[in-house]
Simulated scan of single mutants.
Amino acid sequence: MASTPPADPSDGADGHNDLVGQPHDAKAEGAVAQAEVTAERISTDADPMGKLGKPFDWRSPFFVGLAATAGVAATYGLIQLFLIAGDVFVQIGLSLFLAVGMEPAVSWLVKHRFPRWLGVVTMLVLILGAIGGFIAAAVPALVTQGEQFATNVPKYLAQLKDHNSLLGELNDRFQLEQKATSLLSSSSSGIANGLLGAGVAVFSAVANGLIVLVLTIYFLADMPRIRALGYRLFPHSRRPRAILIGDDILAKVGGYVLGNLVISLIAGGLTYAWLLIFGVPYSLLLAILVAILDLVPVVGSTIAGVVVALVALTVSLPICLATIGFFVLYRFGEDYFLVPRIIGRAVEVPALVTVLAVLIGGALLGIIGALVAIPIAAAMLLLAREILFPRLDRS
């Protein structure tokens, strides 16, 4: 059987793209033109770019040295990148966390014959409705109760000068009047700078919130593609197990976010009812504050309880003590009744790990770190249980 002669680079049958490198001169390109002929032959309808070739020998001394050098350079570059654009990465991570948290709700809508885009739009409408409801409830209450506070200022000032009143005793002990007078008599430039700084902080918070909202919508809309792309990064032999573990982690995050939101709404509602019954002022604003702070596990409800108790102290000492007792009882009910039934089945994190995770997360990233600490701890425990511990047991 006669052997097939090599293809002539000048015969026009090559893999040169007509939209690249024109005019095409096969004779001038030499060996490249011969490779283009081979490229034309291996390109098929099933594999337009040809079949995947043999992997490189990554154990050769050249590749080992190159990998070590590149690893050091890449690590240094990543550290510098996080230092420069740390806030951006926090926004991206928070957006992805919120998107994963809302994914169970969107998937539930899709399973009930909602198109994906309609499920995302539904969640967006609910989010905007919640924000609009918060503003609609907070602004009128803030105006009304602010006017009420301004009306009561003369009474508070009179109590400050009355040494037999509670405010008078606090003034004698902490010199509240002197500190307020010193603050108000400060230079106008200092006050202006403070107002300007407050305005910049509010604008930055609003801008960051809008960025997180937009990124969350994009992540939520593309979640199926993001999920598939993430699993494509695993080798084929390990991909099925990666899917099982990864989907379980995503479900835990989603259950935690939705459960935490439900518990926060319960905390705000019970607080509002309690404050209304005992006539504590600013009840709506305080209930909203409790609902927001309760989103932060472990420490959030405690801080909210202290603030509410201080406001209740302006009514009477017995009401303040009763409010403290209410928050202590609610905290026990939340920890031992609500959290185990609403969140506990989803994350399955021991109490000690929960406290340590919240403390470490809060120290690293503040409120955001404390918010995402528990699902991250749940994911790490799952990975340790499914991967690390079995390998250690076999070693």
Rank of each mutant, 00 (worst) to 15 (best):
Val100His: 04
Ser165Glu: 00
Pro23Ala: 04
Ala73Lys: 05
Pro318Arg: 02
Val212Asp: 01
Leu128Ser: 02
Ser316Lys: 08
Ala242Glu: 02
Val32Thr: 11
Gln175Leu: 14
Ala70Lys: 05
Trp108Gln: 15
Lys51Asn: 08
Ser3Ala: 15
Thr75Val: 14
Val353Tyr: 05
Ile84His: 15
Pro5Phe: 12
Thr69Ala: 15
Leu261Cys: 14
Asp172His: 13
Phe326Pro: 03
Ala85Arg: 14
Asn193Val: 06
Ala221Ile: 05
Ala192Gln: 14
Ala322Asn: 05
Lys252Glu: 06
Thr75Gly: 13
Val328Ala: 15
Asn171Tyr: 08
Pro61Arg: 04
Ile288Trp: 06
Pro297Tyr: 02
Val349His: 01
Leu276His: 10
Ile79Cys: 10
Pro6Ala: 12
Ser165Trp: 01
Val125Trp: 09
Leu176Glu: 13
Leu388Met: 10
Trp108Asn: 13
Val280Arg: 01
Leu338Ile: 07
Val212His: 01
Lys252Gly: 06
Pro6Cys: 10
Ile135His: 03
Ile243Trp: 07
Ile342Pro: 01
Ala373Trp: 00
Ser187Pro: 02
Gly197Ile: 09
Ala13Phe: 15
Pro5Ser: 13
Phe114Val: 08
Thr144Asp: 14
Ile84Phe: 14
Gly93Pro: 09
Ala73Trp: 02
Glu334Ala: 09
Ala379Val: 06
Pro48Ile: 02
Ile245Asp: 02
Ala130Pro: 06
Ala39Gln: 12
Leu196Tyr: 12
Ile343Ser: 00
Gly86Pro: 09
Asn260Arg: 15
Pro240Leu: 00
Ala26Trp: 01
Leu126Ala: 15
Gln91Leu: 10
Leu338Phe: 06
Leu170Phe: 13
Leu195His: 04
Asp45Val: 13
Ala207Leu: 13
Thr38Tyr: 12
Met123Ile: 08
Ala192Val: 12
Leu313Ala: 04
Leu229Ser: 11
Thr181Ala: 10
Ala105His: 09
Ser95Ile: 00
Gly199Val: 13
Ile135Cys: 07
Gly71Ile: 01
Gly300Asn: 00
Phe337Ala: 15
Tyr336Ala: 08
Gln148Phe: 11
Leu166Asn: 03
Leu293Ser: 01
Thr4Met: 08
